[in-house]
Amino acid sequence: MTNPAISASGLRKAYGKHLVLDGVDLDIPAGTIFSLLGPNGAGKTTMVKILSTLISADAGDVWIAGHHLTKDAQAVRAAIGVTGQYSAVDGLLTGEENLRLMADLHHLSRSDGRRRARELLEQFDLTEAAGKPAATYSGGMRRRLDLAMTLVGAPRVIFLDEPTTGLDPRSRRTMWESIRGLVADHGVTIFLTTQYLEEADQLADQIAVLDHGNLVAQGTAEQLKRLVPGGHISLRFADSHGFETASQGLRPISREEETLTLHVPSDGGVRSLRALLDWLDGASVTVDELAVHTPDLDDVFLALTQERESAR
C-alpha cells in the first residue's frame, strides 16, 4: 500500500460570506489521473489554488506527496507542477528562454538546463518556434509550452486546471496524448479539472463532481454512469392513436403527450432495438423519429448538479 499522492480532509474556504469549499475530502492514489468536474463557479479553480499552495484554506488538512501542505509548503512546491487555466508563460521571453528560466529556478546546471529545454521543445513540437517570443504563439502552442515548463522540474504531482479550455479538437487530442504519456512513462499523479465531460471520460481513473462546494459524487466513469437512470430509446409518433397504443404495450419510463414522445428503457443493443422495431411493425403504428440514448457523463453531471439546483 503506497501513500496517496494527495489526501485532504475537511477542506474549507470562504470568500466573505460566500462559501466556496464546504469540507471537501480527497484521497488520490499515486500514479493515477483524478478529474474534478463541476459547473462554472463550483470551486474547481479555488481547489487547485489551495492544493498548489497559491492561496490558503480556512480549514482542513492536506498532504501532498507525503508533505503537509501548510507546515511544509516548500517541500510540497518542490514536488508539484501547475499548469493553470490561463497560460503561465512569460510572453516577452522566447519559448526556449521560458524553459531555461524554469531550469535556472530548479537549479539545473547550464548544460543540463540547455539539454532539458531542448528535449522538451522536441517532445512538445516547439523546436521550430523555440526562438520566437511566447506572446506570438497560438493557443495550443502556449498550452504546450506551459505544460513543458511544468515538466522541467520533473514533478511527482501535476495540477492541470482546465488544460484544454479554448483549444481546437486537434490540439485537445494532442494534449490528451501528452497527459496519458506522463502517467504511463513517468508514473506521475495528475489532478485535472475540466468542464469537458468527454475529457474526464477519456483520461480519468477517478472522477469527482464538485457542486456548491461539496463533492456530490465520486467514482470511475462507469460507476458514475450507473448513478443515473439507464439508457433509453425515444420514439416520436405520427398520431395520438399510435402514441396511446405504444404507451400501453411498451411500458415506457416516461411519456410526453404534447410531442407524442415515449421514452422506452433499452440497453442500446441491436437485439433489443430489433425486438422493439418488430413490436412496432406488429402493432402497425407509425414512428416519425427514433433516437437511441446511452447514458454519458453529461447525464450524470446534469442529474447531479440539477438535483441541488432544484433543492435550493
Binding site: S52, A75, R77, A78, G84, A88, M149
Partner: peptide, 13 residues
C-alpha cells in the same frame, strides 16, 4: 497580472 507569477508562487524558489 501575468500567469507566470502565479507559477513562481507555486515553485520551491
Amino acid at each position: 497580472t501575468e500567469g507566470i507569477v502565479a507559477r513562481f508562487r507555486t515553485m520551491a524558489i
